[in-house]
Amino acid sequence: MTRPILEARGLHVAFNGVKAADGVSISIHDGEFLAIIGPNGSGKTTLLNICTGYIRPGSGSVLLDGHDITHLSPRAIARRGVARAFQIPQLFSAQRVIDNMMLALAAKDGLWNAIRPLDTGARRAEAKALLDLIGLADDTDRISSTLPEGHRKLLDIAVALALKPRLLLLDEPTSGVSALERFPLMEALMSALRQRQITALFVEHDMDVVARYASRVLVWNAGNIMAEGRPDQVFSNAQVRERVIGVA
């Protein structure tokens, strides 16, 4: 097996004595679409926070392409090709949708240019193309704080995609998105990932989405990995059905 893109080894984290991760190791390989499921408060977002350098684990390490990134900042990790979409969208809410996108594109290259405008024809076209792909074509010039929640979520993902990451971490991409829009969103996301050869890890609560799109599933419970495997394998695991999915 090839070396994983991202690997977490023996992570321990505790908040006020509550263990969010208790010796967890995970790895994600090229081309995977790895789902992490588990009850609320089981530490899934904490895992994303650790992998992106937002918090430091009590012990354990995170490797990106075999290099230790445990103590790097979110900024340094982002520059190494790891992008993140948030459970609560993190947008430049006073700015227009297109400006959110163009700034993300500029962050990748051309930020230090103080002479040429942010809004170049090429950058605008690229931003527009991504917005079309993700389904925000009609919102280009809206101020992003005025978007409905579902569209804010889409924009958050589009901004992460604009970084042209190798690895994308998504925190509940379909939460806040109406049931009708979930599958179109996932289809758009999957085609973007495939087209750009992006590996992704996503935390998700909608089991239908997980069953349909994930290439592999990790079940996280009480700071540990309870089960792991293809969606059909995991969903047939009685313990998982009882504790996580809630059907006996």
Binding site: R84, Q90, F92, L103, A104, A114, I115, L163
Partner: peptide, 28 residues
């Protein structure tokens, strides 16, 4: 005016909006 319209100027205004996102865009 050019500076404020440039990526750097937009990043400056973005500090007011959302620093976390800026960090996650890899912008110092």
């Amino acid at each position: 005016q050019r500076y404020l319209n440039s990526p750097l100027g937009h990043a400056l205004a973005a500090v007011h909006s959302n620093e976390i996102r800026l960090e996650y865009l890899g912008i110092p």
